[in-house]
Design a binder for these strands. Structure first.
Lengths: 182, 182
DNA sequence: TGTCCCATGTAAACCGTTACATGATTGA
DNA sequence: TCAATCATGTAACGGTTTACATGGGACA
């Protein structure tokens, strides 16, 4: 059982869902392609952690709805007592910043600016999402409460990333002004 | 050419280095095991991006020192004009938070607390590292300047992670107090 | 007519970790 | 004596991405 399997259990513990929908909802937390998810789901079904049934839809293709079993819920609860693994982040921007001394100021600014744009969009999206959540007044211990806290987590990291790019851009642009004066 | 290859070029553009040393220095930015790095380095040598020579050391095993070639530097500079990829983070903590409503308060607190400990240690380490750097007064555009900015990047993200765990712990512990009063 | 979204699946290639294999030196 | 650090490499396995494959409905 890898983390992705537990991620699937985690979503299915809340409500039954199709592989396609799981793939979409998983992206912010544990990015995975459908080609990874579909075989995993059928494997988990063979392990009796899940059950499935086909649902016919009108104006949309048929879908296979997965539900979590008692055994699946037990597995998921056990996992919550397994020591937490460290997070893994791989960011090309760190490596590009590391060799930024090899390129020109304009390119350096373009690189950081492209990340800034990405983070601004992400933050806007998160603020939209969280404003939906606040209305349903949050009761501690409900799934929605933890959804809200996860949006906060994403907002914290995105904001700190944005702060860094803004600091970098200030320094780089100031430097460009100095250069142009010469 | 994958990102790891460029990461190796990025380090070797600053100074010649052994595979072992590259592996160690790479960890904070692009974690990789020696078993991934050694074959990559020899492949990159066959592509004439690197050259190598054996160095005999006293009281330590022999090492193979790699140096970047002109072609390697050209490749690295070209990479700095390729559009930046989005960062990828996979954090079990997000998934565990997502299904925290399934477990007890004490366990929830333990989970967040274990991440807090990890982040506090990381932050201490970063502050130590950065205090070394500040002394050599930083001149813009030098490799050391970008080193300093990368430490800042790490400090920003670690601090925001820590802020989130502290907020979570405040809420969870307050809730535990309420529960105990009943 | 072409593109996007829904929806499922497989196959191949690539990336990353764990395990196997060796061996000297330093310090607890 | 045992563990850690330095140092290099290969083999097997598992995780992830890209490409192949199909097909209907919505929308411009």
């Amino acid at each position: 059982m890898n983390t992705l399997s537990y991620a699937l259990l985690a979503f299915l513990a809340r409500e039954q869902s199709s592989g396609y929908n799981l793939m979409l909802r998983l992206q912010p937390f544990w990015p995975a392609k459908h080609s990874q998810i579909y075989p995993l789901l059928s494997h988990m079904e063979s392990e009796e952690l899940l059950t499935s049934c086909w649902v016919v839809q009108c104006e949309k293709p048929d879908k296979k709805l997965y539900s979590i079993t008692e055994k699946g819920i037990r597995k998921l609860k056990e996992w919550l007592y397994v020591p937490l693994a460290d997070p893994i982040t791989r960011d090309e921007l760190s490596m590009k910043t590391f060799c930024m001394w090899l390129t020109d100021l304009d390119n350096a600014i373009d690189i950081i600016e492209s990340r800034r744009v990405h983070l601004v969009k992400k933050l806007e999206h998160l603020h939209l999402k969280i404003s939906d959540k606040v209305r349903e007044d949050l009761e501690f211990g409900t799934p929605e409460f933890f959804d809200y806290m996860l949006y906060q987590k994403a907002i914290y990291t995105t904001t700190s990333g944005l702060d860094w790019t803004n600091m970098m851009l200030d320094i780089l642009k100031e430097q460009r002004t100095k250069q142009n004066l010469k």
